[in-house]
Design a protein around this nucleic acid. Sequence first.
DNA 1: CCGAATCCGTTCCGATACTG
DNA 2: CAGTATCGGAACGGATTCGG
Lengths: 128, 128
Amino acid sequence: MNIRHVPPGGGESPCHYRRALEIVSTKWTVLVFYELEFGKKRYSELKRRIEGVTQKMLTQTLRQLERDGLVKREVYPTVPPTVEYELTPLGMTLIEPMRALHQWTEAHYDAVLRAREAYDDEGLRSPD
Amino acid sequence: MNIRHVPPGGGESPCHYRRALEIVSTKWTVLVFYELEFGKKRYSELKRRIEGVTQKMLTQTLRQLERDGLVKREVYPTVPPTVEYELTPLGMTLIEPMRALHQWTEAHYDAVLRAREAYDDEGLRSPD
DNA sequence: CCGAATCCGTTCCGATACTG
DNA sequence: CAGTATCGGAACGGATTCGG
């Protein structure tokens, strides 16, 4: 398999990587994933655990993941409604790649912050 | 190291993974990365190879990557200006995680598309 | 050749109110 | 409890114009 999305010749490629990126492009998607990685959870529990998410964004994110076949939604007809979400087998295959990204963050995010400071300081100096 | 960003106890965590995600959150970021993975390239070459990118977005993406210390920008004072971009050592450490995500795409994107079709078809059926 | 600056339509997202 | 509906501001992103 080749990583190139455009062959050296300069021709077109049907690589849909760009489209696929949208699957995990939002921050909420990732956070939902890290919650469900440990097993099924109820809607309210997700909402409680994912700091700062609105019910609109949480629902929207879950719907999208369900549509993409990454998350399974299960409704129990109890008197107060109960809805549980869990990763599908397909969804579980995404855990590893996301874990790799997460580990990169843990290892290098400080360096990024330092780079930003250096870059911003540089801009302040008058070039004389 | 633990992947959990919120401990089971329910306490807060200073995990900045959300912020870090923004580094690679745009589609252009990823495409630029896959170009520079093979060595330094000129601005015009990047623009030519990355189908559909506007100069605004390309410049904006490159500036951001430069600020984050992932890409190095080199200006040659030639008569027509020449600017080359290349990954920094820090930037190169991101290649592997992104490759993992890319490989996931190659392997499972078809399944996602099928899941979408199934989901959408389901919605068309009147629940009766 | 490389890029900044502006305008402007579209999309995103939070806040709020309402439902089974 | 688990959503849906609507509104409005903010941010994104494309097209265009101008500058070194």
